[in-house]
Design a protein around this nucleic acid. Structure first.
Lengths: 198, 198
DNA sequence: CCATTTACGGTACTGAACGTACCTTAACCG
DNA sequence: CGGTTAAGGTACGTTCAGTACCGTAAATGG
């Protein structure tokens, strides 16, 4: 049979949508390891040519497909800094432990330092990661719980970076809650709290 | 020709040595991406059977070969905490920027969360990473430069974890010195310094 | 409204590697 | 010295990424 039954032949944006959708489906179904170009083409009802005309390789397609699966979060507001921070960490822990987190880790691994692709995964590089932490800290500063010096990305994101380290370097499938508490109480809070001296 | 010319047929430990050596050579010559089982076998003057009898797959061989390339470091002693810490970070930065660092990153990536292999790469898991930092901090505590509460692995290793994050997640080929200084002055020193309050 | 160009669909390949199977033969061991 | 173990040799099976070509539907535009 020529073409897929009675349907009209798709082009341009419509086809691109179909491919991305198929790739996203494959990602959720089989993870990045199971994302093969042939399967994506088949699921999208097209062929590999159409894919390679748009993305140079499998990784680029994977990154593009992941972006439509990623969601953004709104910062919590428990009324107190420690609660907010723990909540942010627990969310992150859940996410990294989830199938989506596994996909993200695989993509980061596959990118292997290709800065351009890594930046796409962070969606606006640092800002998106730092935003909720800065939001939470700003309220804490207003309440007098945190020092204004804490309102710098490097400082604000310390906790999340430490947690991510557990996953990327230690390979934990999920970080125990003790670890989150330890990060908050041993590192994050001592660091951002209003200091009397120096 | 049968066998490799006149040489006697190696077995057991001798052959294992030869394979590991060949794998290490391949790693330094072509990186982990270029480490193929066929090339290792050829360079070791044997065949893939002998390799697969000892390591279950390419990654395991890569990790084993890497371990013989890795070296350990002794902690610096500049007489002052900030100097020691910057020196440790600069060393780490150089290492991660080097070909060996690239191999390590690829291996971590390829392990993709296989905790067992990742642990081998850290050589004794945390301890080896934390040791020099704890050593440097102990001297600082003795001098009154740092608070005793800093002598915990989670706290002591904050700086190195933040730097590693630059490589793994941001994909920088090398971190600018500014970043190291930022990590030290904005995060590490404020965190470990003797605090008057609370 | 028709000719031309663009880009899809179909299909077949190439090439790289991993991992396996199987047999022959040398080294070790009691 | 005979039997067992482990090398060496070699040939596959498989899986995929990425490429090449060709015929044809859809846009384009005169």
């Amino acid at each position: 049979m020529t073409e897929a039954s009675g349907r009209t032949r798709r082009r341009g944006a419509a086809l691109e949508e179909a491919i991305l959708g198929a790739a996203a489906d494959e990602l959720t179904a089989s993870g990045y390891a199971g994302l093969t170009m042939d399967k994506v083409a088949a699921r999208a009802g097209t062929n590999k040519n159409a894919i390679y005309r748009r993305w140079p390789n499998r990784l680029a397609l994977g990154v593009a497909a992941y972006k439509r699966l990623a969601t953004t979060v709104s910062p919590p507001d428990t009324g107190e800094l420690r609660g907010d921070v723990l909540e942010l960490l627990r969310r992150a822990n859940r996410y990294w432990s989830s199938p989506l987190g596994a996909i993200l880790r695989d993509l980061i691994a596959a990118a292997g330092g290709a800065a351009e692709l890594l930046a796409q995964l962070q969606e606006q590089s640092d800002d998106a990661v730092a935003a909720p932490w800065l939001a939470v800290l700003e309220r804490a500063v207003a309440r007098g719980e945190a020092a204004p010096e804490a309102l710098r990305p490097r400082v604000a994101t310390v906790a999340i970076v430490l947690l991510r380290n557990e996953f990327v370097v230690r390979g934990a499938p999920s970080a125990p809650d003790d670890v989150l508490v330890e990060i908050v109480d041993q590192v994050f809070l001592p660091l951002v709290r209003r200091r009397q001296g120096a």
